[in-house]
Amino acid sequence: MLKVENLSVSYGYVTALTDVSFEIHQGEIVTLIGSNGAGKTTCLMAISGLVPKETGKITFLGIDITHKSPNRIVNMGMSHVPEGRQIFPSLSVHENLLAGAMGRPGRTKAQIAEQVERMFSLFPRLKERRNQGGGTLSGGEQQMLAIARGLMMDPDILMLDEPSLGLAPILVEEIFALIQNIHRQGKTILLIEQNAAMALSIADRGYVLESGRIALSGTGRELLNDQQVRSIYLGG
């Protein structure tokens, strides 16, 4: 479904990604793990067209999207929930969701309203706060809003960048349960995480990024049991 081939990205003289290749099939949860600064976020931003690529090719649903603009890529059915949530702080919760619906033009008002209701049943807490400004929500609620906003366009693939960042452990569990729930409803998911144990335990497959290169890959279970992964990312 999504295929990244030989992707290299650099910011000025600093190389962020070197020759990264990976693939995601329909219906999978794939996770990309790695320590801070390994290039995980850069990788997602390159797929979404937010940073220029030096070399490499990215294909989505069989179409070359390497040089497409971000909004075009989104319109094709790829939703990217960015790191640090980046919700619109002075738009209300409801308006944030409506903004999320822009990714799929051509739907009627009724269809969009229906999708909003679906999000509210998935995230009941957002419904209580529908007229509140996005910036007044707590961290966990903001993360839920960011995911809900990403789902508003009913994407084919959902890319999540560090959804557990800065959340209390109990909320992290809630978010991961949600991701599995979304996956069960038929969405393909690319998950980026520093919380490697959690991510690998729900993922079909995983890739380990180390200073901009893919160091290891395998199924979630394989990586969880890998000696090297255990010592570096799982704390022994």
Partner: peptide, 23 residues
């Protein structure tokens, strides 16, 4: 809709691009 687009771009260009707004 145009108003939501304008305010979204006003607050975060990157996030606006990621929800499919032509920034």
């Amino acid at each position: 809709q145009a108003g939501i687009r304008l305010r979204a771009v006003n607050q975060s260009r990157q996030a606006a691009a990621l929800v499919g707004i032509n920034v």
